[in-house]
Nucleic acid binder design. Structure first.
Length: 425
RNA sequence: GGAGAGAUGGCUGAGUGGUUGAAAGCGGCGGUCUUGAAAACCGUUGAGUCCUUUCGGGCUCCGGGGGUUCGAAUCCCUCUCUCUCCGCCA
């Protein structure tokens, strides 16, 4: 959520910046609501002040043993106007909050302006794309004889799920283990395990709700509604919701493995083949909770940590700075890591690293105590995949295939595979 | 699933209708003392928000929501969560 004060001060500038993302900020509507809010709030607070004063007078009079009948008569009349004003104010406040909750974050000044993903900027490329002197197979064809079973998954659940058997299941588990080990041992992350079902407050905090409800799997139980997490960013980031953290505790760096559940309602017909875009996939997530002044350094750091995994796996990739139009709702700046997929002859997203600045922190009321002022201040939150495990598996199959459609295990993974060097049927 | 007890400031914990935004302690911050530190002592210390150029003032908040009342941390209803005991269970 944006700072309402910022919009009040300069709605036009905010609107312009939001427009670079292809989103519209209805300045007129905001100002209308804001004017109503202001008028009503002042009136309401005056009435409340009056009521409080009268109540005090009653109390004092009673304490002195005076007769209070007349005083009570006066005060009773105030009740209706107060209640009426209160209702109106609450209504406007609710509308204003809903309005604010739907506004995306403001892009950082370093984010390239663009109209579509075509305007994303290549920051750097690591290694040349894998060259194979035969026609590469895609991961579906490679995986089928090795135990990648979409038919079984369809029977159990439906489309966009996968069953992995034998060495493929093991390879996925090895990847998870490997990534967590690197991040905890070499990058200083705290490993953390979290719930995979989250409440509405948590999803509001990280920005999935209310705007992207259709992308989530919801679980209804009696009155309450829960959601399967679309990423462990939700659970992990919300650990600091409604907290005031001591400054010396920052930065907090968490690494978390979880399954992720996405209904991908807006992506019908995209990547229908294979396990690129499934309803359920494994991900190792990195989350930073940092001092506001350090969040852009942290973004570079976090991104480099995700890159390190690709480097150790020796998978060619490139780093993209997303342009304004391609930014996620909560992000002020995002680097996507794209891994080379020989079968598609192109780079595909395997990690997305974002600085949300205080956008999520404001929704969550996640703060730290500034030692200089002693006052609580919003933290900055960042998150990034380190990496999407399912897509990493795909990348390994495709980049490490040989002519016989056998898969060579990257060196760093071999210890995690009991020394296995090749996967074959 | 059954029975009971709770939820108060960064933390522990008092407070059952009228200056209680809340005692006390811990922690934090400032100071005295000390060569320095510790200890001791003194002072200070909740959050959000609105109005105001400043000074300052107001409002809201004692798990969430609703109600009673002139007035609610305190009474009533409801939900959530935590703890104890019994049952069941990976």
């Amino acid at each position: 959520m944006l700072d309402p004060k910022l919009i009040r001060q300069d709605a036009e500038t905010v609107s312009k910046k939001i427009a670079t993302r292809g989103a519209a900020l209805d300045v007129a509507r905001f100002q209308l609501l804001e004017d109503q809010r202001k008028t009503l709030q002042i009136k309401l607070q005056e009435l409340q002040n009056e009521r409080n004063n009268h109540a005090k007078m009653v109390g004092q009079a009673k304490a002195k043993g005076q007769n209070v009948d007349e005083l009570l008569q006066q005060v009773k009349k105030m009740g209706d106007t107060l209640k009426d004003t209160e209702e109106k104010f609450n209504q406007v406040q609710t509308e204003l909050n809903q309005f604010l909750a739907m506004i995306p974050n403001i892009p950082h000044e370093s984010v390239p302006i663009g109209k579509s993903e075509k305007d994303n900027k290549v920051i750097r490329t690591w290694r040349e794309p894998t060259k194979l002197n035969f026609t590469p197979k895609d991961h579906v064809d490679l995986g089928a004889p090795l135990g990648m079973d979409f038919a079984a998954a369809a029977k159990i659940s439906g489309a966009r799920f996968v069953v992995l058997r034998n060495q493929l299941a093991k390879l996925q588990r090895a990847l998870v283990q490997f990534m967590i080990d690197v991040h905890t041992r070499e990058h200083g992350y705290q490993e953390i395990y979290v719930p995979f079902i989250a409440n509405a407050d948590s999803l509001f905090g990280t920005g999935q709700l209310p705007k992207f409800k259709e992308d989530l799997f919801a679980i209804k139980r009696d009155e309450s509604e829960w959601y399967l997490i679309p990423t462990s960013e939700v659970s992990v980031t919300n650990i600091v919701r409604d907290e005031i953290i001591e400054a010396d505790q920052l930065p907090l760096k968490f690494v978390c493995h979880s399954p992720c559940f996405r209904s991908e309602a807006g992506s019908y017909g995209k990547d229908t083949r294979g396990m690129i875009r499934n309803h359920q996939f494994e991900k190792v997530e990195l989350v930073h909770i940092v001092h506001p002044e350090k969040s852009y350094d942290a973004l570079e750091e976090l991104t480099s940590h995700a890159e390190k995994i690709l480097q150790l796996l020796e998978l060619p990739y490139r780093v993209m700075a997303l342009c304004t139009a391609d930014l996620g709702f909560a992000a002020a700046k995002t680097y996507d890591l794209e891994v080379w997929l020989p079968s598609q002859n192109c780079y595909r997203e395997i990690s997305s690293c974002s600085n949300t600045e205080n956008f999520q922190a404001r929704r969550m009321q996640a703060r730290f105590r500034d030692p200089k002022t002693g006052k609580p201040e919003l933290v900055h939150t960042l998150n990034g995949s380190g990496l999407a495990v399912g897509r990493t598996l795909v990348a390994i199959l495709e980049n490490y295939q040989d002519e016989k459609a056998e898969i060579h295990i990257p060196k760093v993974l071999q210890p995690y595979m009991n020394g296995l060097t090749v996967i074959k049927p």
